[in-house]
Design a protein around this nucleic acid. Structure first.
Length: 432
RNA sequence: GCUGAGGUAGCCUAGCCUGGUAGGGCGCCGGUCUUGAAAACCGGUGGCGUUCCGCCUCGGGAGUUCAAAUCUCCCCCUCAGCGCCA
């Protein structure tokens, strides 16, 4: 959430930033924060003065009791206070709740380098790597090839679990694990601490890391429990330190999370299309960083470079886009997407999302940095980036590495994880 | 799930029976002293506000009272033992 202090001290600057998002609801929320905060401060002051008087009288009466005096006037005045204070405190609480709820719904302030645009068609390409392969033969879609190789069962998954779920089988199951392990090893080598997180979180910590609308549109809730299945390991990794003070000298903290991810994807398109591209469940290796505010732009570039390295080593062509104002989510101040080239679709599709969330998540979660017991504490920044999501990683490999004879060449960097196999299918040495 | 013990500031702990400004220790920061450091001593060490001042904070909420860490009720969480269990 946005620092309330910043809204008070530089309201026009904050307002102008919110205006760039082009959604008038945010401006209404902003005004609601300002007016309720102003009134709250008045009422809070009044209540403070009344409590002060009560404390004064309380001291007088305590002293009087010791001396055996009656002090009827003071006692009568003190007896008036609770009712008056109740009224004021009720207003105080209501105003504070109004303010905080509006504040919680305000999106993060955007970095000045975020390009202006209405939606994802106006994201700005900032770099490219690799050449799209020549169109030498008619390619199968990734789902068709996966089935032909005996590496996936979409039909029965749909029957038992519904569209958006899948069985991975045989060598493709192993390749999914190979992708995870490949990305994990790369990041561990670069100093990230691997984490296998809980796959469900309570609502309270979850509210700290996502847009509140995600509870309806994205997350699966466990019936009868205060538990939500995670949509990405970013969520448990960031929420892990809620309410804590991070030792300044220990920053930046770098983690690589590995988990299954669950998403309802309500309102999205393509869940009903066969395949693994847009699904309700997938594995993902995710980078998460906590750092000092001044370091976050540098680390954002570092996370992006790591994610790019994953696709370079897989030899999958890609481009990087700077996500524009109209397409940026609630939480990020700046976001790069990496879009890989899918040879069958002959199009770039999103495979990585790399965000600098600045202090937005940390402030919601009450994470601070500094020395325990010292007052000069700051709010750290959090960043996250996909390293690889296997659902899309497998899909792009199936499209790009497929051969005219219906076999699939294994990307060189994955071979060590697949017993040296260079090719899957067709025929007896095939997948299943 | 059952029983018991707990929850006090960054950490540990006293206060609770008997209501009246939450005390001490550790750690950390600053100061005195020192060539430097340690030790010793002094001060500081949470949140909010209209910040030379005041208010709030003892797991959360409600109640009794002029006044609640303290008394009453409800809830949450942690730990230990037992039960169940991959």
């Amino acid at each position: 959430m946005i620092d309330l202090e910043r809204i008070r001290s530089a309201p026009q600057e904050v307002r102008a930033n919110l205006e760039r998002r082009g959604d008038s609801r945010f401006l209404e929320l902003f005004e609601s924060v300002r007016t309720s905060d102003e009134t709250w401060r008045q009422v809070h002051g009044e209540a403070d003065r009344l409590r002060r008087r009560r404390n004064e009288l309380s001291r007088v009466l305590a002293e009087a009791r010791k001396q055996g005096e009656a002090r009827e006037a003071e006692r009568a005045e003190a007896a008036e206070i609770p009712a008056a204070l109740d009224t004021l405190e009720a207003r105080e609480t209501l105003l504070q709740e109004t303010r905080d709820q509006a504040l919680l719904r305000l999106p993060n302030l955007m970095d000045p380098t975020v390009p202006v645009g209405k939606d994802d068609t106006e994201n700005v390409v900032v770099s490219r790597w690799g050449e799209p392969p020549a169109r030498s033969f008619p390619r199968l879609g990734h789902a068709e090839l996966a089935e032909a190789l005996g590496g996936a069962d979409f039909e029965r998954a749909r029957r038992q679990s519904g569209a958006g779920f899948y069985y991975l089988l045989g060598d493709l199951a192993l390749m999914d694990l190979a992708l995870q392990r490949f990305a994990l090893d790369l990041l561990v080598e670069r100093g990230f601490v691997p984490v296998l997180p809980p796959l469900a979180l309570h609502r309270k910590p979850y509210e700290g890391v996502v847009d509140l609308g995600d509870f309806e549109n994205v997350m699966y809730r466990v019936e009868g429990e205060d538990l939500y299945l995670i949509a990405t390991s970013e969520h448990p990794l960031v929420a892990r330190f809620a309410g804590e003070i991070l030792e300044e000298e220990s920053l930046p903290l770098k983690f690589v999370g590995l988990s299954q991810n669950f998403r309802k994807e309500i309102g999205g398109h393509g869940v009903d299309q066969k395949g693994t591209f847009r699904v309700h469940q997938f594995s993902k290796v995710e980078q998460v960083v906590f750092c000092a505010p001044e370091d976050s732009p540098r680390l954002h570039e570092e996370l992006r470079a790591n994610a790019e390295e994953v696709f370079r080593r897989l030899r999958v062509p890609y481009r990087v886009v700077n996500v524009c104002t109209g397409d940026l989510g609630t939480v990020a101040a700046k976001k790069y997407d990496i879009e890989a080239y899918f040879a069958r679709q002959e199009a770039y599709r999103e495979v990585v999302s790399c965000s600098n969330c600045t202090d937005y998540q940390a402030r919601r979660l009450k994470i601070r940095m500094g020395k325990a017991g010292r007052p000069d504490k700051l709010v750290p920044h959090t960043l996250n980036s996909t390293a690889v999501a296997t659902s899309r990683g497998l899909a792009v490999i199936l499209e790009n590495y497929q051969q005219e004879d219906g076999s699939l060449v294994v990307p060189e960097v994955l071979r060590p994880y697949l017993g040296g196999r260079e090719r899957l299918g067709p025929g007896p040495r095939g997948a299943v």
